[in-house]
Design a protein around this nucleic acid. Sequence first.
DNA 1: CGTACAAGCGGAGGGTTCTCCGCTTAGGTC
DNA 2: GACCTAAGCGGAGAACCCTCCGCTTGTACG
Lengths: 205, 205
Amino acid sequence: MDEPDRRTLPFAGAPPSERADAARNRRRIIDAACRLVANRGTAALSLDEVAREAQLGVGTVYRRFGDRAGLLYALLDDGERRFQAAFTTGEPPLGPGAPAAERIRAFLHALVDQVATHRDLLLEAESAAPVARFSSGPYTVYRLHLSILLREARPAADPVFLADALLAPLSAAMIEYQRTQRGLSYADIKAGIDELLRLSGFLTR
Amino acid sequence: MDEPDRRTLPFAGAPPSERADAARNRRRIIDAACRLVANRGTAALSLDEVAREAQLGVGTVYRRFGDRAGLLYALLDDGERRFQAAFTTGEPPLGPGAPAAERIRAFLHALVDQVATHRDLLLEAESAAPVARFSSGPYTVYRLHLSILLREARPAADPVFLADALLAPLSAAMIEYQRTQRGLSYADIKAGIDELLRLSGFLTR
DNA sequence: CGTACAAGCGGAGGGTTCTCCGCTTAGGTC
DNA sequence: GACCTAAGCGGAGAACCCTCCGCTTGTACG
């Protein structure tokens, strides 16, 4: 517990003073994991196997990534950076420039797409760390972004809670359930979100 | 896959034609599990240990309950039955008799209490079966109940999606996060729900 | 009561996650 | 270049979940 808990900050990247061999091994582990995911799929990804493929001991894998969820989040890193850039500095309506209400809608729709794209990895990661998820780097960024937009669009006693409440139905598990059990398409899910926003007065019409 | 999947219907109770020895063993397993939970806590509950405590083979435990999540749900059964009775046939505003809007609010508040009461077991169960949770007996009942009330209170294109969206922020994991990381009390969480209902027009004033 | 067979039982064993701790090494300092 | 120390490494092993399949037993029926 001395060093910062990397599991709760999976996107903090490498600590500033990481030894050269450690950095090299981090890369080797990520590369090995990507190879294995590409071949056998995410669900079958075992950390023992990753270690073998990377020609390292399992202890090294755990030292670098904390646990299974940590490695899975690290694998999501690239796509995540691009997504964050899109809604913080990209083109409107997702990026700055559009009215808050439109940005909220665009953000939630884009989040559905993001979940769709990384479906398998997200399902695994969420299920490996169901509570820690809410302290994970990406989720924290989403919540902050959305709560600011909500406050801008409409005064509220606790915009952060509202943000959590709007993000909750967009967990990978929930979306997977809506699709496979209820037979909804991603478009249906976006329509559901629109209805929720309309009822809440965040979307006019 | 021939027999009905007990994992998705954890509250269906014992099948009508269960052999006497099987029923006896079911009880012994539940009793043993309760003892162990009382002593060591829910998180440390291992099915191997349950089997040892119940003086049965692990195979028997798995035959009866499917998997870890199944056993955990079975442990919740008693409280769950009482809760369901309260909102289907109990006193208003939770039970029938009150206006839909009030029943919605009462139900969500009661659900927070229910989650608070069975916090540990629910956290474990959710984390053991993150997607299957939405097909579990209790969740299915909640969704049905809430979607009917929502339809009654206000026309909507997809009341079932709205129900899911309102239930999502009340997962044990989310509530645990709100409490431990954001420092909210259960009362704060209920207030957040009220705000959400108010914004959505399901609660006037 | 005897028989047949569906249902139940047990526990060895495979696969996985994660820990622990003694050994090795990178890289700054003199 | 030699030394020192914090950082990193490895892999045996503990603990766990779950499966599989040969054996046992309850029970319905003649």
